[in-house]
Amino acid sequence: MNAQERILARIREALKVPAPKPGSHGHGGHGRDVAPAPVFAFQGRPVQVARSWLPPGGSTPQEHLTRFAAASAELKTDFRCVESESEAHAQLRHIADSEGWARVASHHSPLTDAATAALARPTLFTDGGYVPDELEVCEVGITTCDVLVAQTGSLVVNSRTSGGRALSVLPPHHVVLARKDQLVCDLTDAFQRVEQLHGAHWPSMISLVTGPSRTGDIERILVLGAHGPKKLTVLMW
């Protein structure tokens, strides 16, 4: 028997005796030798049941937007909802000037290609591989995302269509370009959307990003930019 078979056999042996229903505080029987309550039939799954118990995400697109903005403010995400793509580009140029970006990193996609063209600065594209040291010296990583979540102020990037694993976390500033219709109500919707997008062929990494990198490890005082980006900007139109 190999280790896998051995462990699985031990698990099957252990599970021959059923365990009491959760939350019954052991009142299904007392003592080790008394058979506990009969097997409990589990039915609830968050998507059907628990969703209504979680923090709400709002019910209209306008409410989603308000919630996302409020969550972003609390997380210290710089969220800007603008009228048009060209206005987003104007904002991007403005940030680039004020921060003095010399090297930009991004990946190829309709949204990012238009934005990097508008920026007109030396750009490292991560598609097809790159040298980590070259990415490390870039001041900003500009990516798209799969979906944004009103409930939590999060967004989802992945390793196939958002420029790889490191682009959104190695440079000190992460800029996300998004369309308004990518904003969904809550995590349940977000996972559903992600499954629709990638379920047939999963990328190797999918990351739910909520605010810039942070730590409270020193006296529980919040510091931004522990290892990942110190700044997270979301430009949406």
Partner: peptide, 30 residues
């Protein structure tokens, strides 16, 4: 949300990342 709320008083933590394999064909890093 349960883990982040009970554990650290956050709605969700900063990064919750899913890994399903090593670098897949067509991916740029990993």
């Amino acid at each position: 949300p349960l883990l982040a709320t009970a554990g650290a008083g956050q709605t969700v933590t900063g990064y919750n990342t899913l890994y399903g394999g090593p670098r897949q064909p067509g991916e740029s890093d990993g």
